[in-house]
Amino acid sequence: MEKKKANPIKKILESRLFSQIMPVGLLIVLTLVFGVITKGRLTNPASLKIIVEQALVVATVSTGGAFIFASGNVSLSLGATTILTATLALMAYNATGSLVVLFVVAIGLGVILMTISALLSTALGVRVMYVTIVMMTLLSALQQAILGGATVSMPYEVVQALVQGKVMYIGFGLFFVVCVVLFHFTDIGRSLRFIGTNNLCAEQTGISKSKYLLIAFLIAGVGCGIGAVLAIIRGGSIGTSTLPSLNMDCMLALVLGGMSIFGGSKSYVYSGVVGALTVVVLNQGLLMAGVDSTIIQAIRGVAFLALVTVSQVRPKGLPAPEG
């Protein structure tokens, strides 16, 4: 029997090393290319600082979301959860004037909302796809119902104090370090990746899918809570038009950051950070290069689909729950 020769390009594309290096390489290449095109305007320290600050909210929320994606599930309600949480946390702050209340309400509410999503699918058996879409619509409507057409604001001096205290960097940094440890050095990350690789096999070896999915949603909830605080600090106010595309930006960031959309062993917790930076570099770079902002959206769509396709193993059939 003649053995079929493996396609070397396919082999490289499907290798673990490629999936680890490609997103970081893409970010570096994009930064350098746009640095040259914009004659250094994109790569000067002030621009780089803006890029990092712009990416922080998406990076934080999608770092938490990586736990859900690793299990082979997709959540579209991360953005809606974050914005509703930010609205209520800011209202709680305005009512009490306490920053402790702001943080506690934000993280607590993020966790509660994501736990509800998780319980609907794990305990009550509703399909994750339905849960995520319904929650996305419900939470957005809830925020509109609470706010009406108004916006809630934080006093300017408080925002400035939080910015100067580097709360954004500290909040993100702490959460990221905890997530790296949980995802790459504990049973939680291993089990979630195992579930994403083969959920039947994982359950047969004693891993409780419901339990780990609930943990993934809880961690994502903490990410939404911290992301909500960062969104408040960055904007100073929250309205119905705040971060309208956060749901999709998180998914975009995870995919551009190298997260396998099917979850599993090729899932990395840093994907959200690398992806969020890539999205901002792409947006800012194209804008500085004079590309129309409408066209940039189409370029983002094409880049998103191209990267998803290149970084996944193409199934023989069509994607379906049964494989």
Partner: peptide, 8 residues
Amino acid sequence: LRVPPMVL
């Protein structure tokens, strides 16, 4: 492309 429908 054969990517999951929601992602597509």
